[in-house]
C-alpha cells in the first residue's frame, strides 16, 4: 500500500498520524482514500474536486503538477507527501 505524509498542522485531522497508509493506483485515488478515511482533511486539501492552489503533492522528490497531476499513476509502495505553500503578504 502507498503512504502519504501529512503536514504537521493537518495531522490533527488524521488522528495525529504523520503518515497514513492508503489504497489507489493514481495520486488522485490515493488522496480520495485519504479523505475518505479522514473526512476532516477534505476542506483543507480540496476545492470541490480540485486540489487547493496552496496544496502541493510530491511523489518522491517530484511535484505532481510537473507529472500528470492527480492522474499520475503510482506504485503500490509509493510515498506521497503533502506540502503546504507557505506565503504571506
Amino acid at each position: 500500500m502507498a503512504n502519504i505524509r501529512i503536514p504537521t498542522p493537518l495531522r490533527a485531522y488524521a488522528a495525529n498520524q504523520a503518515t497514513v497508509t492508503v489504497n489507489g493506483e493514481t495520486v488522485g485515488a490515493a488522496l480520495n482514500d485519504l479523505v475518505t478515511q479522514h473526512p476532516e482533511l477534505r476542506t483543507h486539501l480540496f476545492n470541490d474536486n480540485s486540489l487547493r492552489n496552496f496544496v502541493n503533492v510530491f511523489l518522491g522528490e517530484e511535484d505532481i503538477r510537473f507529472l500528470d497531476g492527480l492522474d499520475t499513476p503510482i506504485a503500490a509502495d509509493a510515498s506521497l507527501r503533502i506540502i503546504p505553500s507557505i506565503a504571506g503578504g
Partner: peptide, 12 residues
C-alpha cells in the same frame, strides 16, 4: 491580509 488567510492553515 486576505492573502495571508488564503494561504493559511489551521493549527498553525
Amino acid at each position: 491580509s486576505v492573502y495571508d488567510r488564503d494561504h493559511a492553515l489551521p493549527n498553525f
